[in-house]
Amino acid sequence: MKRTVSLLFIAALAALLLYVVANMPPMGDPANPTATHVIPRYLENAEEETHTENVITGIILNYRGYDTMGEVTVIFCALAAVLAVLGRERRGAIEGFVDRSEVVSSTIVRTMVRFMVPFILLFSLYTIFHGESSPGGGFQGGAIIGGSMIVFTTIFGLAESSRRVPQRIRAALEGAAVMGFFLVGALGLLGGGEFLTYAWPKVAPGLQPSLVVWLTILVEVGIGLGGAMVLTSILFAMIREEEIATAS
C-alpha cells in the first residue's frame, strides 16, 4: 500500500517535471528570457565593474556575494551538524588517540606523502590566490587543502595529523569564510557603501581597482582556509567516532 502510494507520487512528479521540460524555453536559444534579461550585463560589464577578469568569480563574490556568504555558512553549518551528532573531542584529548589501522603503511608511501603534501598545499594556495583572474578560487583551493589533509591523515593517523592542525587552529579558522565576508561587508559599510561593497567610495575613491582585488583575495583566502578547516574537522570527528566505535 505504502509502496504503491509512493510509486504513484513519484510517477506523478515525474510526469509533471517532464511536462515542464517539454514546455520550457528552448535550450540555447538567444531569445530566451535567461539570455536576455540579467546575463548580458554580467558578461559585458563584469570586468570593469568588479575588476575581476574571471566573470564567474565576479558574479559569485561580487554581484551575488551575499548568496555566497550564505553558501559558506551552509558549509560551516554542515560541520556544526556533524559535531552536533558526533560530538567534538575534549580539549587536548586527541593526542591520546592510538593508531588502530590494521595495515601499517609502508615507508615508501609515507615518504611519498611527506614529500607530496607541501606541493599540494602550494598548488592550493596558487588556486586560491589566482581565483579572481583564472578558473579556481577559494572553494577549489580549500577542497585541495582538505584533500591533502585526508591523504596525510590516512597515512599518518589521527594523532599525528591533529598535532599538525591542532584543535585550537581549527576552532579559530572553521568560520574563516564567513568572517572574511563579514569583514569585507563591514569595511564596505564603514567605507560609506552598502554591505559587501568591494569599494570604499567615501574613504578611498582613487584606490578602487586595487582595493577590490585585495578584498576579493581576502574573501578567497577566507573561503579557502575555512573550507579546508571544515573538511579537516569533519574528517577528524568521523575518525574519532570510528575510534570510539572500535574501542568499545
Binding site: 556568504m69 555558512t73 560551516f76 556544526a80 580539549r91 584543535q167 585550537r168 576552532a171 579559530a172 572553521e174 568560520g175 574563516a176 564567513v178 568572517m179 563579514f182 561587508g185 554591505f195
Partner: peptide, 15 residues
C-alpha cells in the same frame, strides 16, 4: 549577519 558571525566565532570561544 551578526548572529551568523557570532555563530562562526563561538567554536573558538568554546575551545
Amino acid at each position: 549577519t551578526v548572529p551568523l558571525l557570532g555563530a562562526v566565532l563561538l567554536p573558538f570561544l568554546g575551545y
